[in-house]
């Protein structure tokens, strides 16, 4: 899978300066991209544009050659998983298990296959035994793992992780780094927005480092 960005410019209002200026870049599966830049440089805006949470103009962002203005966020999310910068905003169900089950129930797809998938994801993200817990009272690391579980439940090909180590300890960072490597080894692509040098090192040397500066995207 690939995400093509072609001459993307974006500003929140006509009166304000552009947050992103004439950005062109292709993100391909199987790679880890690390996106850096100062606060307010447009990293989150870029990820929200890719996810369709902010609407770009026509013919600026393509997912597998399909213009994303033709898709809604729900359709994009079937291919790309997105981890919010503030994980608390990503969780809302009263229990961990409901957090994972409800998308299936809403789309009438909760069957035995889904049950197996949920069980495997809980195991993978080390959330077994926490099924009845209220997500918002969990620790930072646990919430992060649960949010990742909600993403990995789907058969996604790409992940965009916005500051994934903001509220987790060293052990948690190792866990997330391993998860990212495993995901890319299996053919997935990951865009990580992070300033955490220690975490970036944990991802290994085989990464593409990008920098958003002055609304422009450049390779480090």
């Amino acid at each position: 899978m690939k995400i093509d960005i072609k001459n993307l410019s974006y500003g929140y209002s006509k009166k304000k300066e552009l947050v992103l200026k004439d950005i062109t870049r292709t993100f391909v599966s199987g790679n880890i991209y690390i996106l850096g830049g100062k606060n307010g440089s447009g990293k989150t805006t870029l990820s929200k544009l890719i996810m369709g949470l902010i609407k770009p103009k026509k013919n600026q962002i393509f997912i597998d050659d399909v213009d994303i203005t033709k898709l809604d966020s729900g359709q994009i999310s079937k291919k790309i998983g997105y981890l919010f910068q503030i994980v608390d905003l990503q969780l809302f169900a009263p229990t961990v298990i409901e957090e994972l089950v409800f998308p299936y129930q809403l789309t009438n797809t909760f069957d035995d296959k889904a049950k197996v998938r949920i069980k495997k994801t809980l195991e993978k993200l080390e959330l077994v035994g926490m099924e009845k817990r209220f997500p918002l009272t969990m620790s930072g690391g646990e919430k992060q793992r649960l949010a990742l579980a909600t993403i990995l439940l789907r058969d996604i090909k790409f992940m965009i992780l916005d500051e994934p180590t903001a509220s987790i300890d060293n052990e948690g960072k190792e866990f997330v780094a391993n998860l990212i490597r495993e995901f890319t080894d299996n053919g997935g692509g990951v865009i990580v927005i992070s300033h955490d040098k220690e975490f970036i090192e944990k991802l290994g040397e085989n990464t593409t480092k990008l920098l958003l500066e002055g609304a422009l995207l450049c390779q480090n």
């Binding site: 996810m51 369709g52 949470l53 809604d72 966020s73 729900g74 359709q75 999310s77 079937k78 998983g81 997105y82 919010f84 503030i86 905003l89 990503q90 969780l91 809302f92 998308p103 809403l106 789309t107 909600t150 789907r154």
Partner: peptide, 20 residues
């Protein structure tokens, strides 16, 4: 803002809200 973020959180679970 909170409500809009939560709606976004729903959308990124692969749910097309408008089609429900």
């Amino acid at each position: 803002q909170e409500f809009s973020s939560r709606l976004n959180a729903i959308a990124i679970r692969g749910i097309s809200i408008k089609r429900l």
